[in-house]
Design a protein around this nucleic acid. Structure first.
Lengths: 207, 207
DNA sequence: AAAAAATGACCGACTGGTCGGTCAATATAC
DNA sequence: GTATATTGACCGACCAGTCGGTCATTTTTT
């Protein structure tokens, strides 16, 4: 153990922090950044307004913390370490996880949208941009890695631009989630599957 | 002539309306909705604050008008009516136009992001959602139409789910623009071309 | 064609309300 | 009893939207 021992005091503090974070996520998600007030968050978290400021220095910081915790949650929902025999299997499994994630995070898409737009114009846009860039490059690199593995194992054609293709896959998945949020009739599962079918036919080496 | 004659007064009014709209687009784009003040817009448009309210009933309305005018501009940048011999040609030409649009609108992506998020949580989310849905279904239907044409002409495989595939193409293009905005190193041209190459291999009937 | 009258575009000081953040008072933990 | 945590009343910066008044332009009158 590196961490000595969480004093009960410290522990309660962490719990309260989490409670505030959860309440904030909820309220931000329902009302958007500028229409949520700190009092509202406090009420939802069942603490006094002043207490919020014991845990987070400002509204902006609270917002950013919600962002961070959601990003972490997204990563947690994706297990990127499971290795499979073939690259195709890995890619397919990734697709399944993405679709599951899209459906699981449907409620949070409003939040994500605002985070995007925060990274465009918010007061603390740099932090958000940085966070997103990290997310995308990490994920994109992972996908590119799978593609390269497939190429070197002779599963996929060897004339692929793996970096570019990985980027476009990430884009497509990303935007499907967005569409699904927009349009209740949109079925990410159906669209993603048809999409992957075509992609596979496009990248597989013909025998 | 149906329109009788634009009195010089009326004409100047229209011009000023445009000037305000342009200034507002600029300021909203730079600062985001909630951080732009009407005074700021007025200053940028070089009119008095009260004048704004002669042309637009409220800040929300002004914002929505900027949205509308930008959507119109996007459509104008796309010529969807040009017919080509083959569906493949049409699709490729669409790709070229999309890439051109991504590059042309790079400066406006910040605005678009906020519009998205406005359609999530803004006070007038219904209007924005409606606008976006219209945009996407129109465009998606167009792409689906091209795919169906290709199928019936025997260019493309006949087992395609054209609706789903069209939706995923639209998603991919959409998100590429977004990525390009995020990451200056991202080359939409390169990514989109590689992407289309794979897609074509995936949808073409093998001989 | 010149003067008078009418119009409506234009303006910015002002108001009413909102909300992030503070801090003195209070409660709780140890 | 002291330290730590919590609270909500309070402050003041900020801003959308209003309104009474000004003035350039157009229309009507003479």
């Amino acid at each position: 153990m590196i961490n000595p021992a969480p004093s009960p005091r410290e522990q309660r503090k962490q719990e309260k922090r989490q409670r505030i974070l959860a309440a904030a996520a909820q309220v931000f998600s329902d009302n958007g950044f500028s229409r949520t007030t700190m009092s509202h968050v406090a009420e939802r978290a069942d603490v006094g307004k002043g207490t919020l400021y014991e845990y987070f220095p400002s509204k902006d910081d609270l917002y950013y913390s919600v962002f961070q915790s959601l990003v972490r949650e997204v990563f947690a929902g994706l297990s990127l370490d499971r290795e499979r025999e073939t690259a195709a299997e890995e890619l397919m499994e990734l697709n399944v996880m993405m679709v599951a994630n899209m459906e699981g995070f449907r409620d949070h898409y409003g939040l994500f949208m605002e985070f995007w737009s925060a990274s465009a114009s918010s007061h603390s846009r740099e932090r958000f941009q940085e966070g997103f860039r990290e997310l995308y490059t990490l994920f994109g690199d992972h996908v590119a890695g799978i593609l390269r593995k497939g190429v070197s194992q002779g599963e996929f054609r060897d004339d692929l631009d793996c970096g570019a293709l990985a980027a476009s896959l990430v884009c497509a998945w990303d935007a499907m989630g967005l569409q699904a949020w927009f349009d209740p009739a949109f079925s990410p599962g159906r669209v993603a599957n048809e999409f992957m079918r075509v992609i596979f036919r496009g990248i597989n080496r013909e025998e």
